[in-house]
C-alpha cells in the first residue's frame, strides 16, 4: 500500500503537537522553607502568649549579624519583649544576605566585629593583589631573561 508522504508528514506534525498526556514541562517547585516552621508557630505563639509579652510595632527591620559576614535580615519585623523572662522575640520572614548587599542601610548598625570583618576583606583583597603583582613581576623577569638568552 502506497504511503501518502504528505499525509504522513501532516500526521507527524499533529502527533508532535498532541502527545499523549501533553508535552512535558518542568515545573519550578517553590519550596517554602518556612512552611514546617509555620505548623509549629501556633503552638509556640500560644506558649509565648502566656508570658504576656509587650509588642513593639512598626519595626522597620531587624538584623542578626553573623560572624561569617552574613546577615539574617528581617524586613518589617514584629518584636515582642517579655522583660521579666529576659526574652525578646522577633517574628517575620528572614532572608540571609551579605553585609555588602545590605550595606548603606545597615551602616549605623555595624559593631566592631562587623567592621573588622569588612576591613579583613579589604586586607585579603590587597594581599591577593600583591601576590598577583609579585607573580606578574616574576613572569616578566623570566620572560626578559629568556629573551636575553
Amino acid at each position: 500500500m502506497p504511503v501518502d508522504q504528505e499525509k504522513l508528514a501532516k500526521l507527524h506534525k499533529l502527533s508532535a503537537a498532541n502527545k499523549v498526556g501533553g508535552t512535558r514541562r518542568k515545573i519550578n517547585k517553590k519550596g517554602n522553607l518556612y512552611n514546617n516552621n509555620d505548623k509549629d508557630n501556633t503552638k509556640l505563639q500560644a506558649e509565648l502568649h502566656k508570658l504576656h509579652p509587650m509588642t513593639i510595632e512598626n519595626v522597620a527591620e531587624a538584623n542578626f549579624f553573623k560572624k561569617n559576614g552574613k546577615v539574617l535580615h528581617f524586613n518589617s519585623a514584629v518584636v515582642q519583649i517579655a522583660p521579666q523572662c529576659n526574652l525578646t522575640m522577633i517574628h517575620g520572614q528572614p532572608k540571609e544576605n551579605t553585609l555588602n548587599g545590605l550595606y548603606p542601610s545597615v551602616a549605623s548598625q555595624l559593631g566592631s566585629q562587623e567592621l573588622e570583618y569588612l576591613t579583613g576583606l579589604a586586607h585579603n583583597l590587597e594581599n591577593e593583589q600583591t601576590v598577583l603583582d609579585q607573580l606578574g613581576d616574576r613572569c616578566s623577569e623570566t620572560k626578559q631573561q629568556v629573551m636575553n638568552s
Binding site: N100, Y117, L118, L121, A122, H123, L125
Partner: peptide, 16 residues
C-alpha cells in the same frame, strides 16, 4: 583610613 578600608571591604565582592 578606616573608611577607606571599609570601602575596599564593601567593594571586594564586586571587584572579585
Amino acid at each position: 583610613d578606616f573608611l577607606f578600608q571599609l570601602f575596599l571591604g564593601l567593594m571586594s565582592q564586586s571587584i572579585k
